[in-house]
Amino acid sequence: MTTLANIPQLLVYGIISGSIISLGGIGVSLTYSILGFSNFAHGDFMALGAYIALGLFTLFTGLGIPNVPFGPLSFGFGFALAFVLAIALTAIAVILIDRLLFRRLRRSGPIILMMSSIGVSLGLRNILQFFWSPQPHYYSQAIQPAVAIGILNVRIKPDEMFIIAIAIALVVLVHAFMRYTKMGKAMRAMADNATLAQVTGINTDRVIIWTWVIGAGLAATAGILAGIENKFITPQLGWQMLLSIFAGVVLGGIGNPYGAILGGMVIGISEEVSTAFISTGYKPAVAFVIMIIMLLVKPTGLLGRKD
């Protein structure tokens, strides 16, 4: 019965990976509802963020900016600074991509945008590969011991608690933004009806920029957190997670950011728990199968509204 005894531990792993998938899913969901297309480059925005953080961190280490670990965590000030700056730089890079490509293609319709995002995906991934090679790069080589939390032999690393805490904090922040700020309300309004938003006098271009800031910022965060969890990053990091992210978004109800959070969590947990029964290699297939079942049962997803 070793497999059943492992399940609480796998659940914890699932919550960790679900946190990362959810952060990615929020961005996919926002772009879908506000800009009206499925952005297949979103995973690569995650990888971009992870590599920008790596580049900055390397630079800071070279400049002698200290990185004494914060308490039990594996990183300190230098990395944290790189983390925050990488979020901002990723958002700027994505806005530039929007100005260069997506904005010009908006009149051509959602399918052309989707196609363009596939080009962006492949282009970005290979730009990362060009500069950093396909080989893994490490944020930290130190081994961090996992600590027992005293329930059912479950062990968790301090870094992993940090990942979950950051995810929860960001979800709360995004919720507050969408609910209480004028720009957040305008984003919801534009998701409801983009033409009416324009007719009403909402500056839709600014709403789009904010959508990318939030989506890309969360993507960069997810990418860096995935790097902290796995200990290494590769240019494939985001693309490999894209199927899980989309499965989560579809499961929760495409276009609904809260659905993306719920769906991402369910997918993350299902993928990890499935390893007790089938080969680890099949994690993405588990996500795919859950998504297909959801589409057969209720295509609008768990929290979806009518399309």
Binding site: K182, K185, A186, R188, A189, D192, L196, A197, T200, G201
Partner: peptide, 13 residues
């Protein structure tokens, strides 16, 4: 805007 409240609709105006 159907998913917004009455007050939020007016704010958008």
């Amino acid at each position: 805007f159907p998913s917004l409240t009455v007050r939020e609709n007016l704010e958008m105006g």
